[in-house]
């Protein structure tokens, strides 16, 4: 049996829209990954969870406008603890230029905007983990 990819999935902060993050979690599970679903959590808690769960990937969902503050904060906290090997993915509602900035300037591995097919997300996580 191949090693399962472990993914920590969280809704960022106070954002209330759980539909997307839960749906993606279910699809990742069905693709054979182990998903540790956190519900709503803040960056410190998310990083703590990723450490304790020995996660390969963190998935963050943001539809509440906090993507540019809380998303990069997760990456920063990981770096501070020497955990750069944990890749951070994001999804949600945001301006395309914010998505580009998260990827290019803030160390987010990939941002998935609305309408992304689930298979694209699954493949994206798989190939990133395989490279690491």
């Amino acid at each position: 049996m191949e090693r399962k990819i472990r993914v920590v999935m969280a809704k960022l902060g106070l954002d209330i829209h759980w539909r997307g993050v839960y749906l993606v979690s279910q699809f990742l599970k069905d693709s054979g990954m182990e998903v540790i679903y956190l519900g709503n959590k803040f960056p410190e808690q998310i990083v703590e969870a990723a450490v304790e769960e020995d996660a390969d990937v963190i998935g963050l969902s943001s539809l509440g406008g906090s993507h540019l503050t809380l998303g990069p904060k997760v990456v920063r906290l990981l770096k501070e603890r020497g955990l750069d090997h944990i890749k951070v993915f994001m999804g949600g509602v945001m301006a395309p230029k914010d998505a580009r900035s998260l990827e290019e300037e803030h160390g987010i591995a990939k941002v998935y905007l609305p309408d992304t097919p689930m298979q694209v997300i699954i493949d994206g996580i798989r190939s990133t983990v395989a490279l690491a």
Binding site: L14, I16, F42, G64, S66, L68, T69, L70
Partner: peptide, 16 residues
Amino acid sequence: LPTVRGYNSDDPEAEG
């Protein structure tokens, strides 16, 4: 969101 969920703007939870 902080208002909807009942936090003041200067609560740490409200960040961002």
